[in-house]
Design a protein around this nucleic acid. Structure first.
Lengths: 382, 382
DNA sequence: CAGACTTTCCAAAGCGCTTTGGATTGTGCC
DNA sequence: GGCACAATCCAAAGCGCTTTGGAAAGTCTG
């Protein structure tokens, strides 16, 4: 005990000498390069303090068994010596990694896209605030199962977010079996009861949009949907068709398209329709991206948006399409809006709550997109 | 020794019983739910094999001290029992995390955007192939330094990629001091010698584009640039100005704009210019995104692209703007093209080489963007 | 002041891997 | 047979943290 205190003094001196030597005074006007970059581990810190590792660990982690005075002192010295617990050591000891996994599909479709990345941006903000990190891994769809299995057995992550659920989604069963906590962005058709998800009300959104067009007098309405192997696209189509049927309109397969939601796709498909003998008077899009392509096709043909032809779209409020804070611009496109970035934030929140308190019942949230009347829809001229 | 062998047999039986019990036969038609989800650790695996942990570890990691026969057997049994080394244990022991860090800025500007995410998509592909993962963390710019420090001292990552280098970039010095390997996407003005980077030749690209417009007969050319606090934007502007000066044209500050590269920004700025008394005959953009906004402003005014007004832009070949494999469409915009996703792939490759062989000299690569004559540039009518 | 709690701290045993420094066995050669 | 040497394998000591199961000291009671 006395010996340990002696060691402590000796170590303290050596340490100070060291840090003065290594860290200060190479380029002292550089503000970013502060004191001590040298890392200290728990053992050394405990030595400095003349305390046991147990006590130091507890003091820093807020356990009640340590006196307030000691805790203060520990915190001060820890800050001073720039102590930061090693993450691999911590996670080896606790079994928690403080990392949430996200999987990017690298297939031709669903390549990382602005929808996805805006969601990630939102989520990572929440993670950062809670001391979590986001792990991103690219995978071919056929590898994804193995990847989750890897996540689980190698303890790479504490939980995962399932992106782009398909109509029939095997991943959900898999994750349940692996006992890897997860949240689905979107949802899956059958067996919806027992897992957490955050979704928007896709069906209602597309009913609303379709109704709006019908009320304006449109009878031939096209739908440029996302990939209909995906759950959300399926629901959107259902909403579209329901609205048509309610008004006694026929569902024309010639006017329905489904593919990855890109600008060129919207452009190509709209172009073909506009050049056909019996073009639609309105086009609905599943994404603002394809809507932009449609708009390009329209402007190339010298048609007027909102009278010659109308566009209504789902809008995820993608950040690169949003005006910066200062400028107030009138909403341009008629759309159903819901911020996918906000969804990312909330999804992360739900997931973190879930893993920090596993007893809590699963959260299932469905957001309603907001209808915005813009300048791209109007009465048809014909 | 004999005893250990006995234990091994006993454990083997117990284990088999277990896995049959837990894993098979809950829903045997589900293909994703294969054999054994139960994880086995090294100790158990060694027990099963009747070998020491050392030997098993070496067999699996390809050390020469173990006979080929043994290695075979170890690999087989490891696969059979679904052994996967715990990552936190491995990284605690080796000091390597197999993770590369990327930092997202969450400020108003440089919010995660399609350029950034396409780069990430490329990089994560390379990482995945090499068994690495990508860690994404959101940070306010003022926190970024602390974050790198955290990465270094807590050993969260093996290396980082620096995104969006500013004109004057303190992060580089910091990372050098932290001895955290890094690669810069882009580069930084001064002191360029001693760090790895991957950049495109921004200056030349914008000289080329400007020359093209000048040769067509344009005299009033506008530049809608990115944020000129960023290094790349600075270089682009330099190229633009150099080309003008070479041809004896004056650099008109009224025609130069700088901000985050969004669609609305392009739209707003182009609108203002087009409505002014003396509009430019050509507009250059730093991003296809602002170019799309410019195009919208042009079509709103019923002007014809390529004659009334020309657009030339830098094009990162963003994936959501690319046509899918099948459809061949003629290039639309006149642009300087370079795939930012390919850059992500290559950047990751360089970085991985660097950390796996630290002795190798730093790699500095500058790509030349490719000129594409599209349909958005032509002779000015006035 | 003894006994019963609290309060405050600690030594040591993990967590699951890698790696050091041998020990053991097999082989070739004189 | 004995010796050197290579080929195989192993026990045990880390890596840096958390956590268990006390021990020691301080604080109340009656």
């Amino acid at each position: 005990m006395g010996a340990s205190r002696m060691n402590c003094q000796a170590a303290l001196q050596r340490e100070n000498g060291n840090s003065a030597h290594m860290c200060v005074g190479q380029d002292s006007k550089e503000p970013l390069q502060t004191m001590s970059n040298k890392a200290v581990n728990l053992k050394e810190l405990a030595l400095h303090l003349g305390l046991s590792q147990t006590t130091v660990s507890r003091a820093l982690n807020g356990f009640p068994e340590v006196s307030e005075r000691t805790r203060q002192r520990v915190q001060e010295v820890a800050a001073e010596l720039n102590y930061r617990p090693s993450l691999s050591a911590t996670s080896l000891a606790t079994g928690k990694t403080k990392v949430i996994g996200h999987v990017v599909q690298v297939s031709q479709h669903r390549m990382i896209n602005p929808h996805f990345s805006d969601f990630l941006a939102g989520a990572s903000e929440t993670y950062a605030a809670a001391g979590y990190d986001m792990l991103l891994r690219a995978a071919a769809p056929e590898d994804e199962a193995g990847l989750y299995r890897d996540f689980a057995s190698r303890k790479r992550v504490d939980a995962v977010v399932v992106h782009g659920p398909m109509v029939d989604e095997p991943r959900i069963e898999l994750l349940k079996n692996l006992r890897l906590p997860f949240l689905v962005h979107g949802r899956c058709g059958r067996d919806i009861r027992d897992y957490a998800f955050l979704d928007v009300n896709n069906k209602t959104a597309f009913e609303t949009l379709t109704n709006h067009l019908i009320e304006l007098g449109h009878r031939r309405i096209a739908l440029i949907n996302g990939l209909e192997t995906m759950n959300f696209a399926q629901r959107r189509r259902a909403g579209f068709e329901a609205a048509l049927r309610t008004h006694g309109l026929t569902v024309d397969p010639e006017l329905m398209f489904s593919a990855d939601m890109t600008e060129p796709y919207g452009h190509t498909v709209a172009g073909k329709m506009l050049d056909s003998t019996n073009p639609p008077t309105a086009i609905m899009c599943s994404s603002i991206l394809s809507a932009i392509g449609v708009q390009r096709a329209i402007s190339e043909r010298g048609l007027t948006l909102g009278s010659d032809i109308s566009i209504a779209t789902y809008d995820d409020l993608l950040s690169f399409l949003m005006p910066s804070d200062g400028e107030e611009i009138a909403p341009f496109m008629t759309s159903m809006q819901s911020s996918i970035q906000a969804a990312g934030r909330r999804a992360a929140e739900i997931l973190l709550n879930q893993i920090n308190d596993p007893e809590t019942p699963v959260v299932q949230e469905v957001w309603n997109a907001k209808f915005i009347k813009g300048r791209t829809t109007g009465r048809p001229v014909r």
